[in-house]
Design a protein around this nucleic acid. Structure first.
Lengths: 362, 362
DNA sequence: TTGTAAGCGTTATCAA
DNA sequence: TTGATAACGCTTACAA
C-alpha cells in the first residue's frame, strides 16, 4: 500500500505541494509552474504533475498563494445599504459572471449601514485581502473611518460617483432618463406634477432632478404646479409619498418616481384610497424591476441596462487590476422608457385626447 | 523627520509588523499579541503598540495571518441559482450581521447555475480559503464535480437538506405551513383546489405537498377535485400556472402557491384575463416577501421567520467553527399564516351556474 | 511579561 | 527545462 494514495474522503490534512511534487518526481518549483504556467514546463512533465495532483486531490492553498503572490483575486462590491435588491441583483449577477470568468471571487457588502459590518469590510481591503473594489453606492468615504479610497486598490464606480476624482465610472444618462419620464407625462397633458426623489444628495438624484426641472421648464409649466417629495427608493417611502400626494389640493395628476419600488408603494396606497391609475393619476417608475410588470396596473418605467452596467464595471476593474491605466471619462449607457399601463391622458385632457386618437385611427 | 512617520495617502507599501514593532520598541511577537490577545501583554506596552500601529496606519496582512493561523474567517453562503431574492435577502442579512459580529466575512454564491462560477467556489473551499459553509439550496453535491461536502469544512443547512446526513439543519415546519394554507381555503368553502408547487424534488416541496395532501384528505375532498402544477418559485412560473388554471374547466377556486412570486405572477395573469381575486379565485402565497403587501389585492401568505432562520444558521455554524460538536436534530421554527385580501369565500353560486353552462355546452 | 526563532505553503529568483 | 532556495508577513512554542 502506497502512502501517497490517501484518497479517502475527509482526509485529516490536505495534500501540500511538496507531497505532490514528490509523487510526480519533480521539485516544488516545477510542480507550481506546471499548474499555474503550464507552457513553461515540458508536456510530459506537466502531464505527470497534473496526474499526481489529481490522484492526491490537491488544491493549492490559497492563503499561501496570496501571501507569496501578493494578490487574492477577490473583489469587493459595495452595495447601498437600503437597496433595491430587485434592481441591483441584475447588475451584481453581470459583475459576478464577468469576474468569475477571470478567476476572481466577488465579495458583497455595504459600506453604509451597520457600522460593524462596514468597518470589517474596509479592514479587509487594508489587510490586502481585496484586490479591487466596485462601488454601487455613493457613500464610499464614511466620516471618521478609514476610507476604502485610501487603501491603495483600484476602484471603479457603477451608477455612482466616488467622492474623489480619478476613478473610472460607468453611468446611466440619468438626466436624459428623467427628461424622458417627465416628457411622457407632459405629452399626455399632465401639468400638475409630483416628483418623488431618491436620497437627495446622491449623484443620480442630482442629475435626475435637473432633468425633471429642465423638462418642466421647457414645457412652460410654472413652479407652483410642481411638488417634490424626498424619498429613499424604498416601498415604504412610496407609501409616504402617496400620503403626501393625497393631502394635496388640487392633487397632481402626474407622478415621476426615482425607483420602481417607490412607484409601486405609491400605486398601492393611492389605489387603496380610491385614486385610480391611470384614470386619476399617472405614474412613471425607474429601473424596470421584474415586479414592475406584475403590479396593477403594470408600471410604465425606465429600463436600465443592468447587464451592460455590471459587465462594463467588472471589465473596467479587471483592466485596472492587470495594470492598464484607463481614461477616467465616464462610460455612459442609455436608459429606455418602457410604456405600460400606469400612465395615460391627464384627467381634464382625456376626452379630447381620446377623440384625437379616434380621429387618427379613423 | 522620522522615516517611520510615512503617513501619506497611497503609501507605495503598507507597514509590516516588523516596522510597527520597531517603532513601538517591542518584538514582533509582542506586537502580534498586543493586537490579537490584548490581555497577555502589560497595559503600558499594549498602549505603546496600539499607538504605533495607529500612527503607521498598520493593518495586519490577512493572507499571512490566514496562512499561519490556518483559518480565514470566511464563510461561504450557497444560495439557489434562481432564487427568490426577496425572500433570501432577509435570511442573508441576518446571517451577515451575525457573522460580522464575530469577525467573519460572508461570501455569497450559487453552487447550481453557471458551472464556471460554481466550480470556482468549490475550489475556494478546497483551497482552504473558506472556513465553513451555510447551504440555502438543496443541490449541494453536483454531479461529476468535487463536492463541497467532501472539503472537510463544517456545513450547516438552512431551509434545505444536505444529501448526506450529519449536518446541523435549520428548518421551517413546511408541512404545517402547507396545512395552514390549505385549511384556510377549505374553511372558506373551497373544494376545487390548485396546488402550485416549487421544484418537485426539493426537500421543502416534498414536505409541503405532503401537508397539502393531508389537509385535502382530512376535508374529505376527492382527488378529482385537486390539480397540481409544478413551478420553480419564479414570477414566470406563476404566469404559467395561471395559464394552466385558465384552461381548466371547471376552474379551481382555491390556489395554494409555494412562493409569493408564483402567487403574484398568477394573480396578475388571472386578473388580466378577467378572473378576479378573491371573488372568482382565492390565492395563498408563501414567504411573505415585501411585495406581497403591494400587489392587488394584497396577498394572503405564510410568513417565514427570516431573521430567526438566518441568525440560527449563522450561530450554529460559528459554534461548529469553534470546535463544538452539535446535535444533528434539526432546529425547527414556525411559519405563520398572514391573512390579507387575496382570499375569501368560495363562489358557490356562481360556480354552480358556470357548471351548468359548461354542462349544456358539452 | 517579553523575546527568539521556527514555520505556515506557496511562488519567484537564480543558477545549473 | 528544471531544481535549490529565499522570501511573503504573520503567529506561536519555547526560552528567558
Amino acid at each position: 500500500m502506497n502512502d501517497d494514495e490517501s484518497l479517502g474522503r475527509g482526509d485529516p490534512r490536505p495534500a501540500r505541494i511538496q507531497e505532490v511534487a514528490k509523487a510526480a518526481g519533480v521539485s516544488t518549483a516545477t510542480e507550481s509552474r506546471a499548474l499555474s504556467a503550464p507552457n513553461t514546463v515540458r508536456p510530459a512533465t506537466r502531464q505527470r504533475v497534473i496526474e499526481a495532483a489529481r490522484r492526491l486531490n490537491y488544491t493549492p492553498n490559497e492563503a499561501a498563494r496570496a501571501l507569496r503572490a501578493g494578490s487574492t483575486r477577490m473583489v469587493l462590491v459595495a452595495v447601498p445599504d437600503v437597496y433595491s435588491g430587485a434592481f441591483f441583483d441584475g447588475v451584481l449577477n453581470a459583475i459576478d459572471v464577468e469576474l468569475s470568468a477571470h478567476g476572481y471571487t466577488m465579495i458583497l457588502g455595504s459600506l453604509e449601514g451597520d457600522e460593524e459590518k462596514a468597518r470589517r469590510l474596509v479592514e479587509l481591503v487594508y489587510a490586502r485581502q481585496i484586490d479591487g473594489v466596485i462601488i454601487l453606492s455613493n457613500c464610499a468615504g464614511a466620516a471618521g473611518r478609514k476610507s476604502v479610497l485610501d487603501a491603495g486598490v483600484p476602484i471603479v464606480a457603477v451608477c455612482a460617483e466616488v467622492d474623489r476624482p480619478g476613478h473610472p465610472t460607468i453611468l446611466v444618462d440619468d438626466r436624459a432618463c428623467a427628461i424622458a419620464q417627465t416628457r411622457h407625462l407632459i405629452e399626455f397633458g399632465h401639468r400638475r406634477l409630483l416628483y418623488v426623489s431618491g436620497i437627495a444628495d446622491h449623484y443620480n438624484e442630482i442629475h435626475r432632478y435637473r432633468g425633471f426641472r429642465d423638462a418642466v421648464a421647457d414645457a412652460g409649466i410654472a413652479d407652483a404646479e410642481v411638488r417634490r417629495f424626498v424619498g429613499d427608493y424604498s416601498l415604504r417611502s412610496g407609501v409616504e409619498a402617496a400620503r403626501f400626494f393625497l393631502a394635496q389640493s388640487p392633487r397632481p395628476t402626474g407622478v415621476v418616481c426615482c425607483s420602481d419600488e417607490m412607484a409601486i408603494g405609491f400605486l398601492k396606497t393611492a389605489t387603496s384610497a380610491g385614486v385610480k391609475a391611470p384614470q386619476d393619476v399617472s405614474i412613471v417608475g425607474f429601473d424596470d424591476i421584474e415586479f414592475a410588470q406584475f403590479c396593477e396596473p403594470a408600471l410604465t418605467t425606465i429600463r436600465q441596462p443592468r447587464d451592460e452596467l455590471g459587465a462594463a464595471g467588472a471589465r473596467t476593474l479587471l483592466r485596472c487590476l492587470s495594470g492598464q491605466s484607463l481614461s477616467c471619462a465616464p462610460i455612459v449607457v442609455e436608459g429606455q422608457l418602457v410604456v405600460r399601463d400606469s400612465t395615460g391622458p391627464a384627467p381634464r385632457f382625456r376626452r379630447s385626447f381620446r377623440e384625437r386618437r379616434h380621429a387618427t385611427a379613423a
